[in-house]
Design a binder for these strands. Structure first.
Length: 588
RNA sequence: GCGCUCGUAGCUCAGUAGGAUAGAGCAUUGGUUUCCUAAACCAAAGGUCACAGGUUCGAAUCCUGUCGGGCGUACCA
């Protein structure tokens, strides 16, 4: 279905063109800022009047006179300096709602006309270490972006650019070989429960033991030469690390799979060629012994050109080199039309230089959209970077477990009589949902203060608020049979709708706006646009629920209300589970 | 120094191309439960959108400057 704003925009833009002759004056339709102004407003008339050098209110009148829109709206009103205010006709709203309602899979949202291939790079844990809170934002924001773009009908290629290569693996391999001499023959027999602890031990040993440090360096060389024994141990480390982070993805309902991994190791043998190519193009030059590209517009503290270093003076490659190789791969091999990097804002300069270098090298073109989706830092309630009480890094596993524990307490309090396994299911959905939602609902560019108390207060714009709205609808459905209401029968019998209460109409108007919420959120990679919509929807439902009895309504009102309930539940469920990866529960 | 980013109610935050009287939640005050889940609903109060200029019919939003916070700025990722 064509979005309402698009329909209105086309009609009014056409009217503007017919009156002024200008075809470059869009109507600028948005949902009305204030309900007293109707349902939608056109903001474009003032700009059009300026271009045509006429009085905006007079122009608005001419546009309204030329406008053919009475199949959709009540007679438009002109207000203020030249706004055109539009109010949907009940009949149009009702038909639109029926149409959305009948589309079980996509809720009236068409797939993209021109599907693209979109590479989304997110999460990217360093596998020698546990996932900590720093990985949370990239992981879940990237996941939401992937889900939204995929739902729009594009082909999404998820890339988990894991840190699985480099000097730290030399140390790990050296220590493993030392402690488990048989690891080469039978790596699977060696279980590394605490990979990070093991890594810390290896690092400490390397700092204090010169012989060990040399062995570790030798292992790095062997790694680069794909020495069979060393690779076997390395492969085992990667396997073991997967046991740590895949369950966390599962717990978070993040869609990343093992086969989305394309880590640094994958690009290791492509790095020399990256440097060679850039040298041949005379883009890479030597400076202080390092191979550097100098994209214009960047400078260092001394005011000199800032290098994008692609090879260290000792010959080693860096993450800039790997990112160059990865981006070239994504464009050439994965055929990306768009590449989205989801990392924190501190890396903005790095990605600007990366994109600039790739443009200079001619590896990309104007058709390909390279996008760095940034986000701010997660802070503690003291406004400083989020740490444990003792000042350590907060492990993601611990944080998620605490969220579920706290949610368990709330469930016990609110609903002590439910079966234990159901309480556990609710606590999991609420706890994890609250953590994810708190992140999604913020503007991702802001630093945000992580507070269990705030997110699990479960009031306001939080996941539990929406989960609760959903559960209340499910409760109505459960109660229906006891009151001799056959929901399926009533719903399927609906041929037309008549609204009898403002709360019904307000809810209906929210329900037909889901498409816009998704388009806006996906286009700008801003999950908070989607959560904002879902919150508005849940609020509209809560008001409706409060004002309009459903099961007790009479035969003329009940089918409409049942439909509103059913579609609200489906929309909330779709938004939460399909796009945000947050579970809903039947009861809470 | 240069660059990026932020500064909105007591607190935590929204504010989707420059649009109308700047919005939520928490906290505060008051109201709603013989009724489908009160994890809810309704209402009141709360603002110099850091500050100063500018652009224009109109600025939290764009430009310039100032102040303040965070981050980045040559071989970590």
């Amino acid at each position: 279905m064509k979005p309402i704003t698009t329909i209105l925009d086309e009609r009014i833009s056409a009217a503007i063109a017919s009156v002024t002759g200008a075809t470059d004056c869009p109507a600028l339709i948005i949902p009305a800022k204030n309900s007293q102004f109707g349902d939608y407003q056109a903001n474009g008339v003032m700009a059009a009047a300026k271009k045509a050098k006429t009085n905006p209110r007079e122009l608005a009148q001419k546009i309204v006179d030329a406008l053919e829109i009475d199949d959709i709206c009540e007679p438009p009103e002109i207000a203020g300096p030249g706004f055109i205010n539009l109010r949907l006709k009940d009949e149009f709203l009702a038909n639109r709602l029926l149409e959305v309602n009948s589309d079980t899979d996509r809720l009236g949202i068409d797939k993209a006309d021109n599907p693209q291939t979109v590479v989304v790079d997110y999460s990217g844990p360093n596998i020698a270490k546990q996932m900590h809170v720093g990985h949370l934002r990239s992981t879940i924001i990237g996941d939401c972006i992937s889900r939204m773009i995929e739902f729009e009908g594009h082909t999404v290629i998820r890339q988990n650019h894991i840190g699985d290569w480099g000097t730290q693996f030399g140390m790990l391999i050296a220590l493993l070989k030392e402690q488990y001499p048989h690891i080469i023959e039978n790596p699977d027999a060696v279980e590394i429960a605490d990979l990070e602890g093991f890594y810390q031990a290896a690092k400490a040993k390397s700092d204090n033991d010169e012989a060990f440090a040399k062995t570790a360096r030798d292992e790095v060389v062997k790694l680069h030469n794909h020495d069979k024994d060393t690779m076997a141990v390395w492969g085992h480390i990667v396997d073991e690390s997967r046991k740590h982070y895949l369950p966390i993805y599962q717990q978070l309902s993040v869609t990343l799979q093992a086969n989305d991994e394309r880590g640094e190791s994958f690009y290791a043998d492509k790095l020399a060629d990256v440097v060679e190519t850039l040298k041949e193009q005379a883009l890479a030059t030597e400076s202080d012994g390092a191979m550097c590209v100098f994209p214009p517009g960047f400078q260092n503290k001394e005011g000199n050109p800032l290098p994008f270093i692609i090879q260290k003076s000792d010959g080693a490659f860096l993450y800039a080199t790997t990112d160059l190789a990865a981006l070239r791969f994504r464009i050439n091999e994965l055929k990306a039309d768009k590449v989205i990097y989801v990392t924190d804002a501190r890396q903005a300069q790095h990605f600007n230089m990366l994109f600039e270098t790739v443009k200079m090298a001619g590896w990309t073109n104007d058709e390909i959209d390279l996008m760095h989706v940034t986000f701010g830092t997660m802070l503690g309630t003291d406004g400083k970077p989020f740490k444990t009480r003792t000042g350590g890094t907060v492990k993601l596993k611990d944080l998620l477990n605490e969220a579920v524990e706290r949610a368990t307490t709330v469930v016990e309090e609110k609903n002590p009589d439910l079966p234990a396994d159901q309480k556990q299911e609710i606590a999991k959905a609420v706890g994890i949902g609250a953590v994810k939602y708190a992140d999604y609902s913020n503007n991702r560019n802001s630093d945000f203060i992580f507070s269990f108390d705030k997110m699990l207060a479960m009031e306001g714009n939080t996941a539990p608020y929406m989960q609760y709205a959903y559960a209340r609808i499910k409760s109505i459905e459960r109660k229906a049979s006891k009151k001799d209401v056959d929901i399926q029968n009533e719903l399927s019998g609906i041929k037309s709708l008549t609204f009898t209460d403002e709360a019904e109409k307000d809810l209906a108007k929210m329900l037909i706006r889901y498409d816009q919420a998704i388009f806006g959120a996906a286009a700008e990679c801003r999950p908070n646009y989607l959560t904002g919509y879902l919150y508005d929807l849940a609020q509209a439902f809560s008001r409706f629920y409060n004002a309009c009895p459903v099961l007790k309504a009479d035969d003329t009102q009940r089918p409409v209300r049942l439909l509103l309930c059913d579609l609200t539940a489906r929309t909330i469920k779709h938004g939460l589970t399909q796009l945000l990866g947050i579970d809903v529960v039947e009861q809470m």
